[in-house]
Write a protein that binds this DNA or RNA. Structure first.
Length: 772
DNA sequence: GCTTAGGATTGG
């Protein structure tokens, strides 16, 4: 049988290859050598579709990589299969399978120069007497194979590790030190893992090449280690790199795409492994408290340690043991920040940008072992700086004390600097945010005194947060506090007053907490993204404007064609009042064929903008996933379940009013739209020493004293909210140092398909006035 | 050439 699928059990082949066959090394594969009784073994890293050659012969090409030779650069080779063998193999081959090829012919590879693979390729066919043994990693082998197959690698749970063994394992990162320059010859990274066996394993990983160390960016990431050596150290198991160590790292977020981060071009990764990652994510999500608040510069306070995701704008040498990094994250630190004096000629970075961002960048002084890495950083790169220390210090000049940012020497608590790739989701998000920062705004921010805390008030402010509650009740003041334990043991529905600390909250990315709520059917909707709107606009621009609908008794119409290649037709209908077009700031306009950008521009000038399209006999609203109205910065949406849009004609009734106010609710009513309201929806994890309780915040405006409708389009309000959350739940603080919250909560029952559950909701509570 | 670090902040 020329193609044989071999059963593998516990990583070892149950069916050994015939004893006369000997393994051939990649470097011995040369034309003219005798390869009888030799086999070449490698992992399928690439396969091409099955093809038919000119003469009708089946042809299949795979690329094998020699894993035993994994350090060598040129370790892959093309295998060309012909005839029935091509057909058979194409059916069962999966990436990650191991091929042992015997009875091959070696020939010069005509594509070696282009593909960078081995100078020769191997040709195999039944006719030539070749045999291919496939060790498949697939768990769903087709029927024709008629063998059962186990995964190739065996993974050891962390509670089954034995001294002196080399194992493969999975784990959730509980702690890590980003790679740093060790005192020896290598980079070092220390990683502590946990898994569902609840055993911890600290691994010390070395490599001279940074790329070969796991690409861990945050606690909660999941890693797969291959060939890690286990040793006993101080009575505990310890992991250490051994020859051939390889790692994959995955985002630990439940539901995120399962894409491994790795430097190695070859790795096995199958459905089975995907399942393991997904299971570990779910386990970690409910068993580990690992997602601390992500700090922004807007949220820093004196005397904390925090991790910062930022972009490098400038750098400068300071002295032998310290180095300056100028970074920004788009938000403004609420306190005056320390500026490290450096010679202008020592400062690297784009001068104009450094000047433009001068109010948004902060100076971080890094010391000792971090200097070398800091020096090598590229301006513009995205960084995560771990365990920055903020210190309050008064400068000699005057009494103004400011915040200093230090990255002290050493690697305690994972202190260090990591470079994030552009593909990192946090970087992608940061880029969007940085792009949205209005630089003119940030310069004006100096005058926004409401945000600037006088540093002399700083201590008292912090102290106040410690003692008093950072939230206050707007009602029920006479009620006594109830312990969380009591609430958790009571039946719903009831109402309680509580005093608790906010241990964590979700979502951490605050813009994600904004949803759209229909008060009629009680449904919650995600806020559509700008791209969705753009797509709908593009789709509607295809409909030609109906000239018969232009210039009616209640609106005047203007149409023009764009001068670009697309020759788009744009129509604006100006709604009249008293047969006159009003001042732009009082006018409602309807637009056909406009782009997202054009519509935004128009909202700045006109009171209301309604995107419409023509039908045969009336103008109509676009799809309900597009806003039915734009007013100022706010997009108004209608409920897709409860709305029954009426013809635009109905708007004329408002236009005829004595003094049309163009209220969104009124516009919605006449157009048959059930308007959705913007709400904050958050989950607060509250603790009080007697228990932990998750309570939902469902708030239009009252709690934060910020309208939910304005958050998404207003950087300033976003920062204000971030600061509020940072006061309620300061990043980098121990539980003891968290402030108290006074809340009013109600419990209620929710019947699920399977069971009845009790939920809790915060209400009649607001953030204390002197906190924001 | 066979080590480096082995988690556990606060100085400049």
């Amino acid at each position: 049988m020329p193609v044989r699928l071999l059963k593998t059990v516990s990583g070892k082949s149950e069916t050994p290859l015939p004893s006369h066959l000997q393994k051939e090394d990649l470097k011995h594969l040369q034309e003219g050598f005798d390869h009888t009784n030799k086999y070449f073994k490698g992992v399928v890293v690439l396969s091409y579709p099955l093809m038919k050659l000119g003469d009708g012969t089946d042809f299949f090409k795979v690329v094998l990589q020699d894993l035993d030779n994994w350090i060598s650069r040129n370790n892959s080779i093309n295998i060309l299969l012909y005839g029935k063998m091509a057909e058979d193999c194409a059916k069962v081959t999966r990436h990650g399978d191991t091929f042992a090829v015997a009875g091959f012919k070696v020939a010069k590879s005509p594509t070696a120069r282009e593909d960078g693979r081995h100078g020769c390729h191997l040709e195999v066919s039944e006719e030539a007497g070749s045999t291919i043994y496939i060790y498949t990693v697939s768990s769903t082998v087709s029927e024709t194979a008629s063998v059962s197959v186990a995964p190739k690698y065996v993974y050891t749970p962390l509670n089954r590790l034995k001294d002196g063994t080399v194992v493969n394992l999975y784990g959730v990162v509980k702690f890590f030190k980003p790679p740093y320059v060790s005192k020896g010859t290598d980079y070092c990274s220390v990683v502590t893992l946990v898994d569902p066996s609840n055993v911890k394993l600290t691994c010390t990983l070395f490599n001279g090449n940074l790329d070969f160390l796991p690409k861990i960016y945050k606690v909660g990431d999941i890693v797969r280690f291959h060939r890690i050596k286990i040793r006993e150290y101080n009575g505990q198991m310890q992991g250490i790199t051994s020859a051939g160590f390889a790692s994959l790292t995955f985002d630990g977020t439940v539901g995120a795409p399962v894409v491994p981060r790795t430097s190695s071009k070859v790795y096995t990764f199958m459905d089975e492994e995907q399942k393991i990652i997904e299971e570990l994510r779910v386990w970690a999500d409910s068993n580990l408290c690992i997602f601390g608040p992500a700090a922004k510069l807007a949220g820093v306070q004196p005397m904390i340690f925090f991790d910062l995701t930022c972009q490098l704008v400038g750098k400068a040498k300071v002295d032998g043991s310290s180095f300056l990094l100028k970074v920004w994250d788009g938000t403004k630190c609420p306190y005056p920040t320390w500026k490290v004096p450096v010679e202008a000629r020592d400062l690297e970075g784009e001068k104009t940008l450094l000047h433009q961002l001068r109010n948004l960048t902060v100076d971080i002084l890094v010391y000792d072992n971090h200097v070398q890495l800091a020096k090598s950083l590229k301006i513009g790169s995205f960084l995560r700086i771990y365990s920055i220390h903020t210190k309050q210090a008064s400068s000699d000049k005057d009494d103004v004390s400011c915040i200093e940012f230090h990255l002290h020497g050493g690697t305690c608590y994972g202190r260090g600097i990591g470079v994030l790739p552009e593909t990192n989701p946090d970087v992608k998000e940061l880029k969007v945010f940085l792009g949205s920062v209005d630089l003119a705004d940030s310069q004006n921010m100096e005058s926004m005194s409401s945000l600037e805390l006088d540093s002399t008030d700083l201590e008292s402010h912090l102290q106040r947060c410690q003692e008093l509650s950072v939230t206050v009740l707007t009602d029920h003041q006479d009620l006594k506090d109830t312990e969380l334990k009591t609430i958790l043991n009571s039946r719903a529905p009831q109402q309680y007053r509580i005093r608790a600390k906010l241990r964590t909250y979700e979502p951490q990315k605050l813009y994600q907490c904004i949803k759209l709520h229909c008060s009629k059917c009680n449904s919650l909707w995600e806020v559509p993204g700008g791209d969705d709107f753009d797509l709908i606009l593009q789709g509607s621009a295809v409909t030609a404007p109906n000239l018969e609908l232009h210039n009616t008794s209640w609106y005047d119409s203007v149409m023009w064609t764009t001068e670009d290649q697309k020759q788009r037709k744009i129509t604006i209908h100006f709604v009249k009042h008293d047969e006159m077009v009003q001042q732009p700031e009082d006018t409602l306009i309807m637009i056909e064929g406009g782009t997202l950008k054009e519509i935004w521009k128009l909202t700045k000038r006109f009171k209301c903008v309604i995107p419409v399209r023509s039908t045969e006999d009336d103008l109509e609203l676009l799809d309900l996933s597009a806003p039915f109205l734009l007013q100022g910065n706010i997009k108004y949406y209608g409920c897709m379940r409860c709305s029954t849009p009426k013809p635009i004609e109905c708007l004329s009734s408002i236009a005829a009013e004595q003094q049309p106010s163009w209220e969104p609710t009124e516009i919605a009513r006449v157009l048959g739209i059930e308007p959705l309201q913007y709400v904050f929806v958050m989950k607060f994890t509250l603790v009080d020493g007697t228990g932990t309780l998750n309570a939902y915040l469902f708030d239009y405006e009252k709690f934060f004293q910020i309208p939910a409708s304005e958050i998404l389009t207003n950087n300033f309000l976003q920062q204000k909210m971030q600061m509020t959350m940072n006061t309620l739940c300061p990043p980098g603080r121990k539980l003891d140092d968290l402030p108290w919250l006074e809340c009013f909560i109600k419990s209620y029952n929710v019947r699920d398909v399977m069971k009845q559950q009790v939920y809790y909701q915060i209400f009649d509570t607001t953030v204390a006035e002197d906190v924001v």
